[in-house]
Amino acid sequence: MTPIRTDGLTKEFRLGLGRQRVVALDRLNLEVHQGEIFGFLGHNGAGKTTTIKLLLGLLAPTAGQAWILDRPIEDVTIKQQVGFLPEAPYFYEYLTAEEFLTFYGQLFGLGGAPLTKKVEELLEMVALTDARRLQLRKFSKGMLQRIGLAQALINDPALVVLDEPMSGLDPIGRRDVRDIILSLKEEGKTVFFSTHILPDVEMICDRVGILVRGRLRAVGTVQDLVGTSGVASVEMVVAGLTDAGIQEAERQGGKVLRRGAQVLLRLDDPSRVDSLVELVLRSGGRLVSLVPHKRTLEDLFLEQVKAGL
């Protein structure tokens, strides 16, 4: 079973009086695999939320098709197996945490003792048992995000879709959300979430997709995308290098920055590091330090955004 599949999914908006066309999502072809955590990356306005709204039927696609759990998205019954947390959620503020979850459970046709039990479990999972009788308007932002996660899980969904689940949270809140996402994967659920907080993605995602201006620029595992060796550049600090040696190093492709008696050499091609070290030693210099710089998802993301603009 494929949790999410899209084929040429496109959404255009018509804005303003001139009805100017804006393509928010451009022919998206995406497949999310069973049981994985898929991170959907993109800058603000890249089309992440549009994609999610299309998948959940909040927007109608201009062209293309999509399937959730092998059924077309137009079929409302698929939502029986989907959990969703919108971005910056706002909920019924006069309901208590317990009533809120019960209400959402009832929308799935749940009720009675099983629902009461499920509500209790979820409140415990998101550490809100003490706040169960508190109205949501008295909740902090982090608490709202946690109760939002709980409502997304009330139906024990096979697919969980989270829109920016970590935005606006403090480091502890982010760690909590990360832990919950990982525990969902352990239960065999598929998690699809959008974000622009890259360290979180590197830490927990099995695969990522990068969306730039409505177009999917890259999809794959984090390792595949940033390269297996992972070393993108090397920086070395050298002392006692002669002017001739510096010129030679520049010729070999090193970027030179003088820092008093020391020189910082930066090499963008890591394979040439050996010959440069040799050169330094030959010209009477002394190697103070050598630091390899790994290519991070952030570098890749910035590259893709730059290329896509």
Binding site: L58, V76, F84, L85, P86, A88, F91, Y92, Y104, G109
Partner: peptide, 14 residues
């Protein structure tokens, strides 16, 4: 406006 509707319509509700 407050987007509560997103969570409701993402449930199996017509």
């Amino acid at each position: 406006e407050k987007r509560t509707i997103y969570t409701i319509l993402a449930k199996p509700v017509q």
